[in-house]
């Protein structure tokens, strides 16, 4: 029986499977999309998947919110990952904000937010600079 069809394994670890699917979707968007804005969306998905991982792993079957109740047999979910992820969400928001600000500036400077076109402009500029230098090297060699 292959692992893939082990329904029990998938069933009991459903949250992890969802985490992996979400993470890979996000990563794929970051890598494959040429639009800078869509890359940020992918990055957000990617980060969100990690939030899910942390939050779901602290959940204990039958556990309740970590607020003390009189029942001595009560099972509590761990609150710590939630707190951690609050911080991570803040970091994520800050990253998104900064990325969006950069995209605005890139749009102003380059007139586009397509990665290919930005790279093309960058490359042309670098090539022009290097060509000037090579030309100078040649002149130097000729002068000597």
């Amino acid at each position: 029986m292959s692992l893939l069809f082990d329904t029990a394994f998938i069933g009991t670890h459903l949250n992890y499977w969802l985490f992996v699917i979400l993470m890979m979707t996000g990563l794929y968007i970051v890598v494959a999309r040429g639009n800078l804005l869509k890359k940020v969306v992918g990055l957000n998905l990617f980060q969100a998947s990690v939030f899910m991982l942390y939050i779901s792993m602290s959940k204990i079957a039958g556990g309740t919110a970590p607020i003390e109740i009189p029942d001595p047999n009560a099972v509590y979910s761990s609150p710590l990952p939630h707190v951690l992820i609050l911080t991570a969400i803040v970091v994520g928001v800050a990253t998104t904000a900064l990325a969006l600000a950069l995209i605005v500036r890139i749009n102003e400077a380059y007139g586009t937010i397509e990665e290919d076109e930005v790279l093309e402009i960058d490359r042309a500029k670098s090539l022009a600079e290097t060509a000037r230098e090579d030309e100078r090297d040649n002149e130097e060699a000729r002068a000597v």
């Binding site: 990253t95 950069l102 380059y110």
Partner: peptide, 20 residues
């Protein structure tokens, strides 16, 4: 040099991936 912007963006994407 406006290329700083695209460099910063690249850094941001890869840096965030790394941190995540």
């Amino acid at each position: 040099d406006k290329r700083a912007l695209s460099a910063a963006y690249d850094y941001l994407v890869l840096g965030t991936l790394g941190a995540t």
